[in-house]
Amino acid sequence: MSLRTMILKMSEGLGRTCAIFFLTLIISLPIGIVVALLRMSKNRIISNVFRFIISVLRGTPLMLQLLAVTYGPYYLFGFSVSRNKLIPVVIAFAINYASYFAEIYRGGIESMPVGQYEAAEALGYTKAQTFIRIIMPQVFKRILPSITNEIVTLVKDTSIAFTVSYQEMFTIGKQIANSQTSFTPFVVAGVFYFIFNAVVDFGMGKVEKKLDYYR
């Protein structure tokens, strides 16, 4: 197999890799905020429930969660396994990443000086207005480096979708590697991930620059 054919074949899987990547981000970034708020709820029960959920999701391998979401309903209740693997894969990725993002948000929110809340309160802002207009924009700037870290990890984690037979780029690479008894597809995969992350780094760097107008 020529290198060109190899790259073309793996590019087909790259679309699926991108699908995992973008859908996971689109879902988990906002859900993370909600989870962070519930985790910080003044209601002891709610906050403890979410503390527990987060610790389970962060304390077990994503791979296990992927298996549980994909095959768990079948083993436990005899439900059909989804033919479109993108659905369980994105669900598992999104809840896993939402719990990581939630902790990052929480750290960011808790690091905000109390004076910002007091100033907003004295000016008559409602809690929601304070959160949306005053707190979150500043939190985003603070947590951006940590978010970038997670996003870079997500790029590489997409290869775990292989566990549930989702035919993303790395799975196709493995297939080629097997049928060709060749190591080259792994090198190609490595280059793909590296380029992907270089783009992510570049994009996030732009965003960070954009938020650089204040301290």
């Binding site: 004076g115 100033a119 802002y125 409602t126 207009r133 924009p137 700037k141 204040y214």
Partner: peptide, 27 residues
């Protein structure tokens, strides 16, 4: 009432105009 803090507590992500105008507009 209006309140002025020891530590100013301006909103760092708003410019001067927005710091002044945001509460009258939003609140």
């Amino acid at each position: 009432f209006g309140l002025v803090f020891q530590q100013f507590n301006l909103f760092p992500h708003f410019d001067v105009m927005k710091n002044i105008m945001d509460a009258p507009l939003t609140v």
